[in-house]
């Protein structure tokens, strides 16, 4: 967690608008596909889930694991990404 990825920084830098789910840090092509099949095609839908879980790290990561089989690195990145985005824009 010492530094954030370029992807993270890009995402956190601006409002998410209509960005696809793959723009989230930690979500690559594979996870993106899985999320899309589960109905989470846009980043904001994932944000919705994130918010519904009340920004709870544990629950969100568990959810990531369940829905798209994300490993802990991926879900941590994604969580951090959304959480930082919220701090900035929400």
């Amino acid at each position: 967690m010492s530094s954030t990825s370029q992807k993270h920084r890009n995402f956190v830098a601006e409002p998410m608008g209509d960005k696809p789910v793959t723009d989230l840090a930690g979500v690559g092509e594979v996870l993106g596909k899985r999320l899309e099949t589960a109905g989470f095609d846009k980043a904001y839908v994932v944000l919705g889930q994130f918010l519904v879980l009340k920004k709870d790290r544990e629950l969100f990561q568990e959810w990531m694991k369940e829905t798209c089989n994300a490993n802990s690195k991926q879900s941590t990145d994604c969580y951090q990404c959304l959480s930082d985005w919220c701090d900035e824009f929400l």
Binding site: V52, K54, L59, W63
Partner: peptide, 17 residues
Amino acid sequence: FKPGPIQENTKTLYLKK
């Protein structure tokens, strides 16, 4: 623990919790 909305897609999570 204060849960958020418990829905179809969050219920299992809360059960685990």
